[in-house]
Amino acid sequence: MENLTTAACDDDCDCTPDPALLADFKHAIHALGGKWKLEILFALMNGAMRFGALRRSIGGITQHMLTTQLRELEQDGLVLRTAFDEKPLRVEYELTDAAYGLLPAFKELLNWSRLYGGARLPQLA
């Protein structure tokens, strides 16, 4: 397996991760971390959605939690919120180019889940 954090360790080596790589990794984990963020991003992969449709597509998420997670994703530059000047107000959410950059990672996660998932991993409710 490829070691992305340091050169191969030996007895005389300090095997701590490269601080710059660790900082980048922490940023990614913060932006994507949380119970719902990956599900929200996955739901938006097929295009823009209104809030209600997005909520219905993600079973079990509350309105408050969806709002909170969308605000964080917007702040991190992964989701774009567009409010249309209509009565009643219409708001749509869509992925930014940065979020679409996650598509290869999503495909790899799906491949990993198919290969190693199943009975070996706890089933999601």
Rank of each mutant, 00 (worst) to 15 (best):
G60N: 02
G60D: 10
I61W: 08
I61P: 07
T62V: 00
T62S: 13
Q63H: 06
Q63E: 12
Q63F: 02
Q63L: 13
Q63V: 11
M65H: 05
M65D: 04
M65Y: 14
L66W: 06
L66Q: 04
L66R: 08
L66F: 02
T67P: 09
T67E: 12
Q69R: 11
Q69C: 08
L70V: 05
L70P: 08
L70A: 11
L70G: 04
R71E: 05
R71T: 14
R71K: 15
R71H: 14
E72K: 06
L73T: 02
L73F: 01
Q75A: 14
G77T: 13
G77A: 07
G77Q: 10
L78A: 06
L78I: 12
L78M: 03
L78H: 05
V79R: 01
L80D: 15
L80M: 07
R81V: 12
R81F: 06
R81H: 15
R81L: 09
T82V: 03
A83E: 13
F84K: 06
F84H: 04
D85R: 12
D85N: 06
E86P: 04
E86T: 08
E86F: 12
K87I: 10
P88R: 14
P88Y: 09
L89V: 07
L89I: 15
L89A: 08
L89D: 10
L89G: 08
R90E: 06
E92I: 11
E92Q: 06
E92V: 06
E94N: 05
L95S: 15
L95D: 04
L95T: 09
T96Q: 08
T96E: 03
D97Q: 10
D97G: 04
A98I: 05
A98F: 11
A99Q: 06
Y100S: 12
Y100C: 11
Y100D: 15
Y100P: 12
G101D: 09
G101I: 07
L102N: 15
L102G: 14
L102C: 02
L102R: 07
L103W: 10
L103Q: 04
L103F: 07
P104Y: 11
P104W: 06
P104N: 07
A105V: 04
A105I: 14
F106T: 05
F106D: 05
F106L: 15
E108P: 00
L109D: 01
L109M: 07
L109G: 02
L109S: 07
L109Q: 10
L110C: 14
L110P: 00
N111M: 01
N111I: 01
N111Q: 03
W112I: 02
W112Q: 12
W112K: 00
S113D: 15
S113A: 12
R114E: 03
R114W: 00
R114N: 01
L115P: 00
L115C: 11
L115Q: 08
Y116F: 03
Y116L: 01
Y116W: 11
Y116E: 00
G117S: 05
G117N: 00
G117D: 00
G117R: 01
G118H: 01
G118C: 07
A119Y: 07
A119L: 15
A119V: 12
R120Y: 15
R120W: 08
R120P: 03
R120L: 14
R120C: 13
R120S: 14
R120F: 15
R120Q: 03
L121C: 03
L121I: 03
L121S: 12
L121T: 02
L121F: 15
P122L: 02
P122N: 03
Q123Y: 01
Q123C: 08
L124V: 04
A125Q: 13
